[in-house]
Amino acid sequence: MSDKSDPKPHGPQAPDPLAVFFEAARAEAPVVPPDLRARILDSAVRAADRAAPSRPRALWHRVSGWTLPGLAAGVSAGLAGLWLGFVTPLPLMALDMPGWMHEALWHVDVIALPLIWPDDPLLLGM
């Protein structure tokens, strides 16, 4: 086995004096003793049990992340819509026609127009 990642042949290579030693060492198959294997597998089971979340934790993991903020945002938007629906018409009316204008219109309609009594363009067919 060459030490280079991408070995390129440069003519005849000298035999590796260590090749027979490496070959002999590689021939030994690694064997894990049964008790060590059992301990490793036991630790795998315990680690998996520890990693498995309990039911409340699993539920929390499921609703955490984007789910919970999304739900909260939806509820907030709904409540804000309800609030606006109840509250906004009054201020809008106030903005649309302030109190001084109501009084001015009353004066026009009830006092000024009857005195002048202009012909109504609509009644004249214009």
Partner: peptide, 23 residues
């Protein structure tokens, strides 16, 4: 699969890695 509690996967991974690490 080991995280999901699959014992067969734990055995397979152990047999794959542990002998090499031991050696």
């Amino acid at each position: 699969q080991v995280v999901a509690g699959d014992q067969a996967a734990a055995r397979a991974l152990t047999d794959l890695i542990a002998p090499r690490i031991l050696r």
